[in-house]
Amino acid sequence: MSAGIELRGVCKRYGEVVALEQIDLAVGAGEVVVLIGPSGSGKSTLLRCVNGLEAPDRGTVLVAGRAVDAGHREIDALRAEVGMVFQHFQLFPHLTVTQNLTLAPRLVRNQERTTARERARALLDRVGVADKGDDYPATLSGGQKQRVAIARALAMEPVAMLFDEPTSALDPEMVGEVLAVMRKLARQGMTMLVASHEMGFAREVAHRVVFMDSGRIVERGPPGRIFDAPAEERTREFLSKVL
C-alpha cells in the first residue's frame, strides 16, 4: 500500500455542513477507484484532502506512506507527487501549451529548459495534441484543454492522479477523447482516484467503485457488483436515476 493513497477516519465540516464523515479509503498502487454519488456528496472534498488543498478537521491522509498534513515544505513536495485534474481545466491562460507543461518541472524539479520541452512534446503527443504546443489555451477546444491539463499533471511524473469530474464541463462530443486518454493511463498502471458521473467509464476501467452520499461512503465494491447488484437502497435509488 506504500505507493498508494490512504485516508483514515477523515472528517471535514464547513460550519454546520458535514462535507466528509469518517472516511476510510485505501487506493493501492496501480489501482483505479471511481467515486460516484450525487453533487455535494463529498467526492470533490475528498480529492482535495488528498493533495492538501483542504485540511481535514480530523483523521489522516497518507500518500505513498507520507502524511499530507505535515509541514509547509513537505506538503509542496507531496503535491508535486500527486497530479490533479480539475473540472474546469485551469490551464494557465498567459502561457503557451508547452509552457503550461514545463512550468512546474522547471520550477519544482529544476529541469533544464530543453529537457522539459522535449518531455512536454512527448506528453502532448501521448494525449494527442502534439501540434498545439505553441498555441495559447484559449484557442483550444474543451476536450483539448482537458487533455493538455492531464499532460501537465503527468509532466511532474506523479505517483498518483486525482480527477475531479474531468468531463463534466465538456460538450458531449468531447467526453470520449478525454476518457480515452484516462483509459490509456489506467492501462499503463497509474494509480487513479476519479470523481465522475461517467458510469460507463467506471464500469469499464475502475477496479473498485465507491458510492458516496452526504459525506459518507455508503457502499464500495467491484463495478460489476455495485452497478448490477447494489446492496444499499440509497445506491439503488441513485443508480436508477443516472443509468
Binding site: R79, L91, F92, L107
Partner: peptide
C-alpha cells in the same frame, strides 16, 4: 489551486 497542486 492548479499551481499549488503541481507543487509550486
Amino acid at each position: 489551486e492548479a499551481a499549488r497542486s503541481l507543487g509550486l
